[in-house]
Write a protein that binds this DNA or RNA. Structure first.
Lengths: 132, 132
DNA sequence: CAGTATCCGCAGCGATACTG
DNA sequence: CAGTATCGCTGCGGATACTG
């Protein structure tokens, strides 16, 4: 790491400037907006879910990625994991208070996209027609 | 593709349900929340930028990925690209009306993360302390 | 039921060099 | 200045099989 880089990093740490390369908030942003992170969080908005329920709700996710994504979210304190010590075990995931807070802007984003998907697809098709 | 899958796809298309695997809004979501898509859009909120300016503002992005990301966003109609026919050429990127609209929820998300990065990092460290 | 373990393909991405 | 072209690799993520 060069000296200018070091200075930039220090600045980023102080200002929490997401545009700086080494800012910790970059990592968080990447986690939240990761391929499955967004969808899992959005799925939990409607209430607590068990593992299998999440796997079914977020169609297309593999158990491996669901497990991995949940672990990340739990680690970040965005999701709570509670285990009922029964046989077989019951594990329930739910949004933590922090996660619920995050869910507000996140859902607005997902909703906006849902509302404007048609517009965006039309634009893409129009664009594609102008070039070979 | 199995028959149930076909039904699910049809349903997804009708309802624009982001949780369905084959829903078009999934692709849009992936583009917007792609590694660089979010940051480039956020960078453009402060006003139009030239190519080099964007590259510098979004620290860490390579020219290749910037070019690629911009092309995607232009294609989706979220970003406008205007060329001044001078020598050397000047290309300016700016948010389209649709892009500005999207920027609202997107910026709220980025801001939320910026505000809570410390909390999240602390949570992660605490979590890591409980396990080897 | 709720995961973990392992293998592995491939595309996303970076680095570098080149062009109109 | 604003990109494209090409190469090479890393690690995301899917498929499959196994476990407490």
């Amino acid at each position: 790491m060069t000296e200018p880089d070091r200075l930039q990093t220090a600045l980023a740490l102080l200002t929490n400037d997401t545009f700086e390369a080494n800012c910790p908030s970059r990592k968080i942003l990447d986690q939240v907006t990761s391929r499955w992170g967004t969808l899992v969080l959005a799925a939990l908005v409607s209430g607590p879910h068990r593992f299998a329920a999440l796997r079914d709700k977020v169609a297309g996710i593999s158990e491996k990625m669901l497990s991995q994504t949940l672990k990340q979210l739990v680690r970040a304190g965005l999701v709570d994991r509670s285990v009922e010590p029964t046989v077989p075990p019951q594990v329930t995931y739910s949004l933590s208070p922090l996660g619920s807070d995050l869910a507000t802007p996140l859902c607005q984003l997902v909703h906006w996209i849902g509302q404007h998907t048609d517009e965006l697809l039309t634009a893409q098709r129009a664009y594609d027609d102008t070039r070979p």
